[in-house]
Design a protein around this nucleic acid. Structure first.
Lengths: 177, 177
DNA sequence: CAATTTATGTCAACATAGCTGACATATTCG
DNA sequence: CGAATATGTCAGCTATGTTGACATAAATTG
């Protein structure tokens, strides 16, 4: 790995050894997360492309399918984006028949979002390869593996009550939506 | 403005039950990955903002710090973006003194990339909160936890030799860069 | 050596998906 | 009624990805 050898410094300082190892920074998992997530999103991205949609559409269809009747406000809260940003993709999904809006039965200001049959099929088509990839990765672990992964990933998520919990985190259910 | 479609479209189809559970799709981990990665990137994003940099700069500084002497081609391969896309952020990082370029000692066409002291400090400042977050999440696991996470994340990554390996994957070392 | 390939840089144009600010409308609530 | 809320929309800006075309220097190959 070491590229030591006669190097011409063209300007200023040069550090030719990897940095931060001494500090005990967990570069290994940082990078694994980067690569894992990048590849995890690549399968649905390819499918979305054939629909003329992007990753933003994926998220919307996904969460609407997962929680039919979701309000716009709840969706915004889940995605943590602005309404103007959501509006663009949501409009496209509604216009092309993937999502339906229904006036809230109790609060008529709300627009509750439901997947159409088409929307559901799209959501599933996008989730399938991701689920497969996860299943493949889990296969290399023992029985407890899935729970360990869930605990780890949950522990990576900000708790609703602000900052990183110092000692205790157990988001589990209801941290959003 | 008219808000068409705001009324109850009992006209169209409405699916008011979550979909895909029957199929055994692993929505749980799909969503945990989404939330975990989103929050994982939020700490460095906040820091980058104060520097006038974005996530793209983060990636470049990170990998250059991790592998000083990296060539431009190798970096492109790691990031899987186009050179034009890289050029923008790399130029900024070089001009503001975070990264140095050195003509390749053997192949003089190459521009090997090195972090400056400043660049290294930035890379570490960005990695620190991520490493902390990971350490926090790992704390909830037993001794074997870290290895389990590594195995899982490695299993999520595409192998260099194309598609998802059907039975066997073990990227471990050297899948990129 | 001449021709070609490789590594890199650069210009121009474009797309997606985020953002802020401002303002409109319908509905609910006090 | 008036204020707050849920949503929609217009306009413009930014960050980061894309393609295509072309330039230059250095290495490789015939």
């Amino acid at each position: 790995m070491n590229r030591s050898g006669a190097i011409k410094p063209e300007s200023g300082e040069i550090l030719d050894q990897p940095g931060g190892d001494a500090e005990g920074i967990d570069f290994e998992i940082i990078e694994l997360l980067f690569f894992a997530y990048r590849d995890f999103t690549s399968d649905p991205d390819a499918i979305l492309d054939t629909f003329g949609f992007g990753r933003a559409h994926h998220r919307v269809v996904h969460f609407v399918n997962r929680e039919p009747g979701l309000t716009v406000a709840a969706l915004l809260d889940t995605l943590k984006i602005t309404k103007q940003s959501l509006a663009r993709v949501l409009k496209q999904l509604i216009n092309s028949g993937y999502i339906n809006q229904v006036t809230g039965p109790e609060d008529r200001r709300q627009r509750r979002l439901y997947p159409t049959e088409r929307g559901r099929e799209l959501a599933l088509a996008l989730a399938r390869p991701q689920s497969c990839r996860i299943a493949n990765a889990l296969e290399k672990l023992d029985e407890s593996g899935r729970e360990v992964i869930k605990t780890f990933l949950s522990g990576m998520i900000d708790t609703a009550d602000g900052g990183l919990a110092p000692g205790l985190n157990a988001p589990k259910e209801g941290r959003d939506r």
